[in-house]
């Protein structure tokens, strides 16, 4: 739990952006949208997991049952 998650997300974002541009140059538009979607799904899984952990801790801490 620290900075490495941010670097992971940034890495996935940059890779998907670059692959997307390459695919656009090779005029395969539909594949590039697939790549962007895949990158987004991977990153969202990580972030949703973090947000659920945060909300669980807040719930226990503040007694918000």
């Amino acid at each position: 739990m620290g900075v490495e998650i941010i670097f992971k997300i940034a890495a996935v974002g940059i890779i998907t952006a670059i692959v997307c541009q390459i695919l656009k140059k090779a005029d395969k538009e539909e594949v590039s949208t697939m790549v962007t979607l895949a990158g987004l799904v991977i990153v969202l899984l990580m972030v949703v997991d973090m947000i659920s952990q945060l909300f669980d801790t807040l719930k226990n801490m503040f007694g918000l049952y």
Partner: peptide, 30 residues
């Protein structure tokens, strides 16, 4: 670090810049 990562991502026109901001916020609050 989160601010710079989301800046670079926004430059590459990828919408993950916002997600990096959310992740950074979660880490700070945790």
């Amino acid at each position: 670090i989160t601010a710079f990562c989301s800046l670079t991502l926004r430059e590459n026109k990828s919408e993950l810049g916002v997600v990096v901001g959310i992740a950074g916020g979660c880490i700070i609050v945790l």
